[in-house]
Nucleic acid binder design. Structure first.
Lengths: 105, 105
DNA sequence: AGGATATATAACCAAGCGAGTATATGCCTG
DNA sequence: CAGGCATATACTCGCTTGGTTATATATCCT
């Protein structure tokens, strides 16, 4: 049961998601575009599927993978309290580090 | 050069971020709250610091860690095109699974 | 200075992961 | 049903990672 986070931790998998964002693609297409080997690509797709980030439909011998954007809602939800934080105080820390009141300049 | 993604991949580190979201905390406090060992906590904090997600200030013998929410902007930016995707088509895939044309019904 | 407190670092271990090779499975065509 | 194409799985290997124990570093207090 691979979490969404661990699925997204790998850069290649994020690349694949980016490619699927444009349109659904067959495995072979992803192999070409990513430069990964075919088994490597399949393995990454397996992880993404396990995390609910992609779905696959079978078209003859090919398997066409599609993005399932709703799988990312979890991340978005997790992020929201932090988003609130960095909106309110636009990083009080940094504002404090280079303390230079706007009056100066 | 640990990326933000890899820093967030670990559940314990996300827990720590959650605790720092409430308020800045010293290491010992985090050790208690997380149940991790002290060196383990320090190690996680090191990763978080390397990713720019937390900052530390020294207060006597203690080191107080603060959240740096702006470090999460990267994630938020990455997410935005996908957010657009799941807003537009509320998962066309799933809508397709229970295909029931709007004309029917 | 000396001891206590608080945290970081070093060294080690076990488990997990990503990459690669080889092979199995599934489907289609003649 | 044979052969080929497309993809998944099995297996192995080297590296990274998280956890743990032990030790070093830094600051405070008396």
């Amino acid at each position: 049961m691979p979490s969404t986070w661990t699925a997204l931790a790998d850069a290649h998998r994020r690349t694949i998601l980016g490619l699927l964002l444009e349109r659904p693609r067959a495995v072979g297409e992803l192999v070409e575009l990513t430069g990964l080997t075919q088994p490597g690509t399949s393995k990454h797709l397996r992880v993404l599927r396990g995390a609910g980030l992609v779905t696959a439909r079978t078209a003859a011998q090919k398997r066409v993978y599609s993005l399932r954007p709703s799988g990312l809602v979890e991340i978005d939800d997790w992020l929201s309290p932090y988003r609130r934080a960095w909106n309110q105080r636009l990083d009080a820390l940094e504002r404090h580090l280079d303390r230079k009141p706007t009056e100066e300049e």
